[in-house]
Nucleic acid binder design. Structure first.
Length: 766
DNA sequence: CGGACGATCCTTTTT
DNA sequence: GGATCGTCCG
């Protein structure tokens, strides 16, 4: 152990050997935070702490796996294997399966993914006859998810003035009812969604103190990585577990908080001191990853944000390359320029393809780079987007597996009741669902109910339903006898999936068969791997693993020496020698969705910070002046973030050439141009978004506002404003006091509306 | 009932 | 550009 400690700098070592009690490790980008966590765990183990007494929560399963391996090298695999290490979701799914009966679920409950949740919400909306396009499943789900992450029940939701007002002003006043129905349907289906895994853990700990006490006693040490991206629900789990002993070590960086859309509360890291006043603070400020230029440029970016914990990240590596900005006329050209530049850099430095990453804001951007790379015969791998497990043929097969384990799983049942086609159509399904609703049963319970025949189906339909039911019953009866692999093989043939797939002789059909084969192989590997490790290898376990996979987790072995393409979000925690951050344009990065609020822009800026700090040696930024969006091309201006970078870190050789073309390019974003002022070397700031100049400095203590709406402090009667949905209008009245100011706005096309400023996304035009 | 074909909506980001 | 949705017809 001693030799490992000597590899650390003073701050790192202090954090590793800190005794019992709470510690907060503020870890700047690239400051060796994983190393600290790894060694701290190894250190605890070397002090004689049993591995199963250590709970370490990471952001991805991959991070957990790698950390386990590294710890295994130090203390031995046998020991490392018994650590409780994984994502919040997978650890607590595991615990919930054991405790399921305490919270009214079975131990083989299904985990609904986002698509399942949306589909369920959709059918609830339909059933409630909520017409109008305001009720979009995705939007409703995010509202419900937000509530769950704040531990707000449907009843509490209905009492929550803020949520109700927000819903009303978005024309979706019935969300709370949908929420209520959704929770009920999930219970009926013996299913939990992602948020439920955390929510029900809290419910379990609240309602079953004896159970909480057991885990409190088991987990003597709790460690949390990426603490800045935990939500309230996760925060509370950690707090409860550590309630008695306060042996909690959290690691994070407020500057890298990029998941607020998922309910993450940056406040968790800031409030640590309140929950654990006796806490020890460790700051890791030396960056070992990147050159000085990259670190300093990143610092200059993040300094544009108001609220942050003070820290000075520095690098002692060489100054290194300046940051280059590639300016392209179109998205096609952007792809071409980036790939051209990549080829050059690779030849100049003799580096491999795996040293390069292309990072973008949205998955949709990947296509253009895939194309450019393919044309140049450059190998690449792409993360995210349509993952293997989201393909239709895979989801179909998985649905059968899910049914075998939990036939009440309504989403799975609806998916396959008529796949392969067996003559059970929409009419039949509608009637089954109606019967289920009336009798408060799941679809499966209706199907297997003795009085199914009294529902008035004709004999043919009854027969078809009966053979489907016995097919599934056959699978169910095999669950206890077969392992995951045997059962899957059985299901593929018996269900008729294989036969169905072989009907299709096209190329895509061939690919689908290969995919299914791949899944079967995956099940076999899983089955064997688990058996060798002496673990249970049932279908339940396989399904759980599959549903909690992150896209980083599904890396295959033939991914050597390839350029990496991924969103910035998925690049979190990773590093590459050469990084391209592409699509650095207004409306794309920062996303147009974040234009309404200061906090949203700050989060986008943190995302930009994360992107730049992934690089070890070189960062290249690129933007396009026009790109295809929704099938037609639209124009763009360079991102305001370019002007956040101190110009002394920018390589402007190429830029100055482009300035001329920039100034002659007409600007299409009227009135509220941004970093379109790229002339002047990104230096000039757009006053509208330069918050620091307008707001008095709040001092060294970070302050985080919680306003959700736009900055409308300058609003007065007579102002022209623009609303996302209602369009342009004029303010005719203002009443109430901040933060509850209500404005009456007369819209040109939508008439007069009363809007609460903190919720309405009003843009002041004049 | 099921497949085919246009219309329509859309896009952040993910466990 | 592309996935999803509703409608139409065999």
């Amino acid at each position: 152990m001693q030799q490992y400690l000597s590899q650390l700098n003073e701050a790192q070592r202090a954090a590793v050997v800190a005794g019992d009690g709470p510690s907060l490790v503020i870890a700047g980008a690239g400051s060796g935070k994983t190393r600290v966590l790894t060694y701290r765990i190894a250190y605890l183990l070397s002090k004689g702490v049993e591995p199963w007494r250590i709970l370490a929560l990471t952001f991805t399963n991959k991070a957990a796996r790698e950390m386990k391996e590294r710890i295994g090298v130090i203390v031995g695999d046998e020991v490392a294997r018994n650590l409780w290490m994984g994502t919040f979701h997978s650890i607590f799914a595991r615990i919930l399966r054991k405790e399921a009966v305490n919270i009214g679920f079975s131990s083989s409950f299904t985990i609904y993914d986002t698509a399942d949740s949306k589909s369920l919400i959709k059918s609830i909306i339909k059933d409630m006859k909520l017409v109008g396009k305001e009720y979009k499943p995705g939007l409703i789900l995010s509202r419900i998810s937000g509530a769950k992450n704040d531990l707000v029940t449907p009843a509490a939701y209905a009492r929550d003035e803020h949520r109700m007002i927000a819903d009303r002003s978005a024309n979706v006043p019935k969300v709370h009812e949908i929420f209520q129905r959704y929770v009920k349907e999930c219970r009926k289906a013996d299913a939990m969604d992602f948020d439920d895994l955390l929510l029900y853990t809290n419910v379990l700990f609240r309602d079953h103190p004896e159970s909480l006490a057991r885990y409190q006693q088991q987990f003597r040490y709790v460690l949390v990585d990426e603490y800045q991206d935990t939500n309230f629900s996760q925060y509370l789990i950690v707090r409860k577990l550590a309630e008695q002993h306060h042996n909690v070590c959290v690691v994070g960086d407020d500057a890298q908080s990029i998941y607020s859309f998922r309910g993450a509360k940056i406040e968790n890291i800031l409030n640590f001191r309140n929950d654990y006043p006796e806490y020890k603070l460790f700051k890791l400020e030396q960056n070992y990853r990147s050159t000085q230029t990259i670190v300093n440029a990143a610092n200059s970016i993040i300094s544009n944000n108001k609220g942050q914990i003070k820290k000075v990240v520095f690098s002692e590596k060489e100054p290194g390359d300046k940051i280059k900005v590639l300016s392209a006329i179109s998205d096609m050209e952007e792809g071409f320029l980036v790939v051209k530049n990549l080829i050059t850099q690779r030849l100049e430095n003799g580096s491999s393809y795996a040293d390069f990453a292309i990072l973008y804001r949205t998955n949709a951007q990947s296509r253009i780079f895939e194309e450019a790379l393919r044309k140049n015969n450059i190998p690449y791998k792409i993360y995210g987007g349509l993952s293997f497990y989201q393909r239709k043929e895979i989801k179909d097969l998985l649905a059968y597996l899910r049914l075998a384990v939990n036939p009440r799983d309504g989403e799975a049942l609806k998916r396959v009741i008529n796949y392969p086609a067996r003559g059970i159509g929409k009419t039949t399904l509608d009637r089954l669902e109606a019967a289920a609703a009336v009798n408060d049963l799941s679809l499966w319970e209706v199907l297997s109910h003795p009085s199914l025949s009294s529902l008035g189906f004709n004999a043919g339909t009854l027969k078809k339903l009966g053979s489907f039911t016995s097919l599934i019953n056959g699978f169910i009866s095999q669950v206890p006898n077969m392992d995951a692999y045997e059962l899957t093989s059985e299901i593929v043939t018996q269900s008729g999936i294989l036969k169905e797939l072989h009907q299709d002789k096209s190329n895509e059909g061939q690919t689908r068969i290969e995919n299914v084969d791949e899944l079967i192989n995956g099940v076999r590997d899983f089955s064997e791997g688990r058996r060798e490790a002496g673990l249970e290898n049932t279908l339940v376990h396989f399904l759980e693993e599959v549903s909690l996979l992150t896209d980083q987790d599904s890396e295959t072995s033939d991914d050597n020496d390839k350029v990496t393409l991924m969103t910035i979000h998925s690049a979190k925690g990773l590093e590459f020698p050469y990084v391209y951050v592409v699509g650095v344009e207004e409306g794309l990065f920062p996303s147009s969705m974040s234009n309404y609020s200061e906090q949203a822009i700050e989060e986008e800026r943190r995302l930009f910070y994360v992107a730049v700090t992934r690089a070890e040696k070189n960062v290249t930024l690129s933007y396009a002046r026009s790109r295809f969006k929704y099938g037609e091309h639209s124009f763009a201006t360079p991102s305001r973030f370019l002007s956040d970078i101190d110009s002394k870190y920018l390589d402007d050789s190429e830029v100055s050439l482009k300035q001329r073309s920039a100034s002659t390019t007409p600007r299409f974003e009227s009135g509220r141009s941004s970093a379109g002022s790229i002339a002047g070397r990104f230096k000039r700031k757009t006053p509208e978004f330069n918050y620091r100049e307008r707001t008095s400095d709040s001092g060294p203590v970070p302050r985080f506002g919680n306003r959700a709406g736009a900055d409308t402090s300058g609003l007065a009667i007579g102002c022209k404003v623009e609303h996302e949905r209602f369009g342009c209008g004029e303010v005719v009245a203002l009443e109430g006091v901040a933060p509850n100011v209500k404005a009456t706005v007369s819209f040109e096309n939508a008439g007069q509306k009363q809007l609460l400023l903190k919720f309405a996304k009003l843009k002041i035009l004049k």
